[in-house]
Design a protein around this nucleic acid. Structure first.
Lengths: 345, 345
DNA sequence: CGCATGAATGTGACCGGTCACACAAGGCGC
DNA sequence: GCGCCTTGTGTGACCGGTCACATTCATGCG
């Protein structure tokens, strides 16, 4: 016990060496489990380590070995359920591999700000995971200098121009396909789509899954409504849909959007699922408790985070296994917000 | 441009020194803005820095200077809105002060696991912020070795036995008081309380604010219902409250809980706010879009995070200002879920 | 004019580990 | 008894910065 109270400098391997009567190199060998250390010597060193409360200095280790054992997560937001879950998944795996997790928030999608954040992440050494579901994230992923170990959590695994990068993703196309088919199978003539902002100029996977289901069923394809990420966006988008009596089924880009849509329909006096059916994506924790509870497609964000780390870990260390992503497939969860259209009850 | 493609070792100050024809120390002086460097020399060094793309190695800086410029946030969860917002607030301030943000999730409240996480945070150097709203967090805060710079984000600023620590907090007592008074002023005889788990054995600030409002109004004080953090807990807790016709107003420990309560009341056929009024805490993003929209007390989590960092920053650096926490006071947000009791409409 | 002073710059040690290599002692084959 | 390999251990340099101190040179002042 340090009774004096003032923090004394922590013990280094040389302190331990002196205490054990060996050289610092021997201490290093003991720490790293090197085989050729005489058992009696090892014993003495371990005793000294114990007595002095020695802990290996992570900074010095990083400097000397060149490996930081750190993963920095770049994300536009930490409060969205999906983003936060991915982060939690990464942290979980990282902790198991005794990696530290750093986080950088991409406040704006402005090039300079994004570049600065990426630089900070690069400075930290180790690997980078970019959550690239939104413009800021996509820009960040593109701004990572070549040669740095990086994994993108992306909407769609498309090759960005001029470079191979590893990505992880969920099968959003399949998810949208399932949800749309579900709504069509209830008897709806078609399904309207309120979209989250697309991260790229290309058609999003969700949009194309929705489109495919419509096409297969021979249903007319309404123009998708572009919206934002949160409930307010869904609410705004649904105000006009609610006025159109031919709208009987709405698929929403995520559960937050769906919440706003539900609200707008309620305000417009259109009962759900009596007149209009609504479905979302993600299966956020609150979705099951809404009134009406929300039909949605569950996505395995935590698994996605774990997969991202696994991939990065494989790139960072030879020995680490590069597992194929064990991300669960999207699962349709049918609840109260979807039902047959008014005519077919 | 590095056309060869293979990553070459980044330039060090000695590389820059060689390129500029000065000593490494002069480069160091330029980097750190030391006054006594001849302008022409400075110019040459800056040119070399630019040309070689030199960036100061954060690891070496940390090792040599002893300062890590890192803050590690320990939290039980990253997906809860409040926790995630605090994290975002910390990150925002940290970024402005060019500190890196690390994150450690307290998976369980088990002593060994918590101690391990705290150790990891301590190993990272720099400061620690512990979100101590729950048992895991409280335990972590207690497990931080004395002498380490730490700030706790706590429910109530109580002195833990045997030590002074800095904390930040919101005025939960006031928040609960306001919400309870609001409900009483609508004419309810009393207000029932569904509580989030208390982080300590002592009465939580929310509970005592609620109690005080009841007492001042001469209202009977029902036994608080202990619940969990999520909607499922609120749902379970409200099942019995819903059966009791004398229950006309329910205050919930947070908005998630309130969501579960709303759902349970709906299932029990008790209209809100027709028969029962419900209020929550936090003003989570979805609360305004629920049906009925939720009366709640807005808490400034982001500000709380900023305050936590400011305090830590002050402890870590002499020069940094130790601002008094500029956390906004709780603000009652009245929405649809609260109204007069059935008799008084 | 000589010397103290300060500006501008360089040298060496250090932070706490790791890596490459040297070296002594002991076992074995010949 | 000699060389050789293996085992156990120590020494020196290094990672990329910072810090303390030495050195050089131009200046100001008595």
């Amino acid at each position: 016990m340090n009774v004096t109270g003032h923090t004394r400098r922590p013990a280094s391997i040389r302190d331990v060496a002196t205490a054990a009567g060996v050289s610092y190199q021997t201490v290093s060998r003991v720490i790293n489990g090197h085989p050729s250390v005489r058992p009696s010597t090892r014993e003495r060193v371990l005793a000294a380590i114990e007595e002095l409360g020695f802990r290996r200095n992570a900074t010095a280790l990083a400097l000397a070995s060149g490996r930081t054992r750190t993963v920095t997560v770049l994300t536009a937001n930490t409060t969205h359920y999906g983003y936060a879950s991915i982060l939690q998944g990464i942290e979980e795996s990282a902790r198991a591999a005794s990696y530290a997790v750093g986080i950088g928030v991409l406040e704006s999608a402005e090039d300079a700000a994004v570049a600065a954040e990426v630089q900070r992440a690069a400075d930290a050494g180790g690997g980078i995971v970019v959550i690239a579901y939104d413009p800021a994230g996509v820009r960040a992923l593109g701004a990572v200098p070549a040669g740095l170990p990086v994994v993108g959590v992306v909407e769609t695994p498309a090759s960005p121009p001029g470079g191979e990068s590893p990505w992880v993703w969920t099968d959003d196309r399949e998810a949208a396909y399932q949800a749309t088919r579900h709504l069509l199978s209830l008897g709806h003539e078609t399904v309207h789509y309120v979209a989250i902002p697309s991260s790229t100029r290309r058609t999003s996977a969700r949009t194309s899954g929705w489109r495919q289901a419509l096409k297969e069923a021979g249903a007319p394809e309404p123009r998708p409504v572009q919206s934002s990420w949160g409930p307010a966006g869904g609410h705004a988008a649904a105000l006009e849909l609610a006025r159109d009596p031919s709208v009987t089924a709405v698929l929403c880009g995520n559960d937050d959007l769906a919440l706003g849509v539900l609200r707008a329909l309620h305000e417009a006096g259109r009962p759900v699922p009596g007149e209009v059916s609504v479905a979302g994506f993600d299966d956020a924790p609150h979705s099951a408790f809404l009134t009406p509870s929300l039909t949605t497609v569950r996505l395995d964000f935590t698994g996605l985070g774990r997969a991202a780390f696994a991939l990065l870990h494989g790139a960072l260390e030879e020995s680490a296994p590069v597992a194929p992503h064990p991300v669960s497939v999207p699962e349709l969860v049918v609840r109260e917000s979807s039902g047959p259209p008014p005519g077919e009850r």
